[in-house]
């Protein structure tokens, strides 16, 4: 389904601020699986997601989606196959435009856009039906600018828009991180419902250990541009938040384990 092979990305190469964000990362994701990517700040988890979304081209390696080599595809072209929800609840929708207009745009994701009227009566009814499922009362406010809605409502709509045309891959970039706890829980639940119902293949970056345990069926842990843990199958069903915390702890310890520690241990170990 999604095959990431040995991608590398260095930001600001050959400068003092050089960041090796991804170092030979390979990841294969099966159709219909829901994968969470967790990691410390600057671990490369968002970079990995952006590499798939096409925000930048990797320095090396390839990305195949649906048996197509999308490595050199520009961002907008990948959107034909990929639905995205961003961390910023304001990033996924056009605030000055109405709910209906926003959704109409997503109804034509990856299709040609002609000179036909965008929001016709029948389209409007279709939108109202789908929006009603969110149980946010938004179906009565289809002509209100999206900018007047709350972050949670906007994120719910972004999620709906990202999955309106069934994407080959759904990318969720910490999509509940900027919301209040109640909205975050609601969006979490909505994500699970949609992914389960539509049997979507999804890749989610998250800060929330609980979310990583609850939603997906596979957890990837990243650190310093590498995948350091890959928990899936039976192992994933057993994993709990403290296990993930312990894994982070191990990573932190390993970081402090430098050559001087090795020398120290060599003298007192045996």
């Amino acid at each position: 389904m999604l095959k990431i092979n040995g991608i590398r990305k260095t930001f600001l190469p050959n400068t003092p601020n050089e960041v090796r964000a991804l170092r030979e990362v390979s990841l294969h994701i099966k159709e219909g699986s829901f994968t969470a990517v967790i990691g410390t700040n600057g671990s490369g988890k968002s970079t990995l997601l952006n590499a798939v979304a096409g925000t930048f081209e990797p320095d090396a390696g390839s990305i195949h989606l649906n048996n197509l080599d999308i490595t050199r595809w520009p961002e907008y072209r990948r959107a034909h196959l990929v639905g995205r929800v961003f961390q910023n609840p304001f990033a996924g929708t056009a605030p000055g435009m109405t709910i209906a207009e926003n959704i109409v745009i997503s109804m034509h994701r990856g299709k040609s856009r002609g000179l036909g009227t965008a929001v016709t009566r029948s389209v409007r009814d279709e939108i109202a039906d789908r929006v009603r499922v969110l149980k946010m009362g938004l179906e009565d406010r289809l002509d209100n600018p999206i900018g007047t809605l709350s972050g949670g409502q906007r994120q719910a709509l972004t999620l709906l828009m990202a999955t309106w045309l069934r994407p080959k891959l759904l990318l969720l970039d910490e999509h509940t991180a900027a919301l209040d706890p109640k909205s975050a829980a609601k969006i979490s639940e909505l994500t699970k419902d949609i992914v389960d119902h539509e049997k979507l293949t999804a890749l989610m970056v998250t800060h929330s250990m609980q979310q990583a345990v609850d939603l997906p069926n596979r957890i990837i842990m990243m650190h310093r541009g590498n995948i350091v843990e890959d928990v899936h199958g039976d192992q994933k069903t057993r994993v709990r938040v403290p296990d993930l915390m312990a894994a982070f702890d191990r990573i932190a310890k390993r970081d402090l384990f430098d050559e001087s520690v090795a020398t120290l241990l060599a003298r007192q170990y045996g």
């Binding site: 961003f86 990033a91 435009m97 207009e101 034509h108």
Partner: peptide, 17 residues
């Protein structure tokens, strides 16, 4: 509609292909 959206939120427009 797409034209207006491009001005309103470029990121969203990219994500919508």
């Amino acid at each position: 509609t797409a034209l207006r959206a491009a001005g309103d939120n470029a990121q969203m427009v990219l994500a919508q292909g």
